[in-house]
Amino acid sequence: MHRSRFSTLLIDVPQDEASAAASFWSSALGVPARPVPGEEQFTNINGAFPDLVMAVQSIDGAPRFHIDIETDDLDAETTRLTGLGAVEIGRWLDCRTLRAPGGHLLCVIPVHSEQETFERLATVWE
């Protein structure tokens, strides 16, 4: 048994456009943009969606959106999602990057939200 939940919407933008994108989304949604200390490629835009993190991520590729699924068991959640048709295409730190059917990216990450939020919103998988 493990638990997981959709936790994060990431707006991936080329590095030279990340600051402008963060400013745009912050202003468009009426919430502050805050750089993530120690993770300079991320700028959080929290408050736009209850119980969901929204962030701009600076990348070396083309613009896109991707989601993060947080879990209390990385191996079990990765196995569950690959069993549904996703393909693991990479790893970075504790993050597993998968490509879902249709081509969209998603990451499986350890629990990042507050424990109460995770426990309240996570789905239990047998």
Rank of each mutant, 00 (worst) to 15 (best):
L29N: 06
V31A: 13
A100H: 13
V87E: 15
F42I: 01
R64I: 01
S27F: 07
D75N: 13
H104L: 09
H66F: 02
S27N: 14
M54P: 01
R91T: 11
S27P: 01
T79H: 15
T78P: 08
T82M: 14
D75K: 14
L105H: 07
P32C: 12
T79L: 15
S58Q: 04
T97C: 03
L52F: 06
G85H: 14
G83A: 09
L98H: 03
T71F: 05
V31S: 11
T43Q: 04
F49A: 04
E88G: 00
T71E: 11
D73K: 04
V53T: 15
G47F: 10
V31C: 12
F65W: 10
A48H: 05
S26H: 05
G61D: 12
E39W: 12
G90T: 03
S26T: 04
E40I: 03
P63L: 06
P63M: 05
T78Y: 07
Q41Y: 08
P50E: 15
D94H: 10
V56T: 07
R99H: 00
S58N: 03
G103S: 03
R96A: 10
T82C: 13
T78I: 03
S58L: 04
G61F: 02
G85K: 11
V87D: 12
Q41C: 09
D60H: 05
D73Y: 06
F65T: 03
T78L: 10
G47C: 10
R64V: 01
I69V: 15
Q41N: 08
D72I: 08
V36K: 02
G47T: 07
E70G: 00
A86Y: 08
A33Q: 02
T79C: 15
L93H: 12
S27R: 13
P35Q: 00
G102N: 02
